[in-house]
């Protein structure tokens, strides 16, 4: 940085202009194709959403400019807040459980004491390869109290398990599906990070007489903190965007999963059942900003610890 800053001060003004202008155009030439695609598929939809969120289209009366009215409405919308509250609870409970299990499995695989390590690794990862839609349909079937697995257990053991798809339990039931789906994925991130830890550290620890627990807390966990932060951010985004699972289970539990069960489902219902595209765009944008803020805070915290 400082090196490039020195020569211009010495060189004549004309040379400076030439040197500055040429590289900038060449650079754009390389970046151009990317920027074009980026603008088209990332910036344009966001800009368009922003644009339509400033209007209101009615079935009767057409489209009018309403400024920030949609945002005002969203911030005072109890359905929006209840959806947000629900995914926040989901985030607070499901994400730690899922990442905890993933970490445990990754450490177990990495310990080298597990018999049939490759088999476990692949079978734990396998659910991630099952499309979310298929996984949800499958779990939805198992949750059935009449003909599903829950029904079979009730019948076989003469117990009466509560219906997982009742309003009180449906969030937990969805959490279970999501955990099942993503433990393998997160495990792989952690496991990959663990494999990069130089073995010399373990040897040193052994010489120093450190036990397994000490090795985990003093070497392994600090070494994969970056991976933990990344997995955490992915999970936060995933929780806030919860959509597939509730959307599919809705047909099995229409009264437990409302049209505003999660913010994404709410935006979807607003737009596709209610034709409130403008308001739907507003909800989507607010959720986008919220997700970004929270993910950023987590990232900052994660980085600070590392430093």
């Amino acid at each position: 940085m400082t090196q490039t800053a020195v020569p211009p001060a010495v060189a004549p003004a004309a040379a400076v202009r030439r040197r500055r202008a040429r590289p900038s155009w060449t650079g754009w030439g390389f970046v151009g194709p990317f920027m074009a695609v980026f603008a088209l598929v990332f910036l344009a939809p966001i800009a368009y959403s922003l644009w339509i969120s400033l209007f209101r289209t009615q079935l009767v009366g057409g489209t009018t400019f309403v400024g920030l009215e949609n945002y005002q409405r969203a911030l005072a919308d109890p359905q929006f807040w209840s959806a947000l509250g629900r995914v926040t609870v989901f985030l607070a409970v499901q994400v730690p459980v899922m990442l905890g299990i993933a970490l445990l499995v990754a450490l177990a695989l990495d310990s080298g004491r597990l018999y049939g390590r490759d088999f476990f690794r692949i079978s734990i990862f396998l659910p991630y390869a099952v499309p979310a839609v298929v996984a949800t349909l499958m779990w939805g079937f198992m949750y059935g109290t009449r003909f599903g697995l829950v029904g079979n257990i009730n019948e076989a053991f003469g117990v009466s398990l509560p219906n997982p798809l009742s309003p009180d339990l449906v969030l937990a039931a969805i959490g279970n599906i999501v955990t099942w789906e993503f433990v393998g994925y997160n495990m792989l991130i952690f496991y990959a990070a663990l494999r990069t830890v130089p073995t010399s550290l373990y040897e040193a620890a052994e010489i120093d007489g450190a036990g397994q627990w000490r090795v985990i807390t003093a070497i392994k966990l600090p070494a994969i903190r970056g991976a933990l932060v990344v997995a955490g951010i992915f999970s936060i985004i995933g929780s806030f965007q919860l959509f597939n699972e509730p959307s599919i289970l809705q047909s099995l539990a229409p009264n437990a999963i409302t049209t505003y069960f999660t913010p994404n489902l709410y935006a979807f219902s607003l737009s596709f059942s209610g034709q409130q595209y403008n308001y739907s765009a507003t909800v989507a944008l607010i959720m986008g900003v919220l997700t970004m803020v929270i993910a950023y805070v987590v990232q900052l915290r994660g980085m600070r610890k590392e430093a």
């Binding site: 229409p254 009264n255 437990a256 409302t258 049209t259 219902s269 059942s273 034709q275």
Partner: peptide
């Protein structure tokens, strides 16, 4: 739209 929010409101009577 009305039918889509039926379960949000009336449907609650079932659960």
């Amino acid at each position: 739209y009305a039918n889509s929010v039926f379960n949000d409101t009336v449907g609650q009577a079932y659960v």
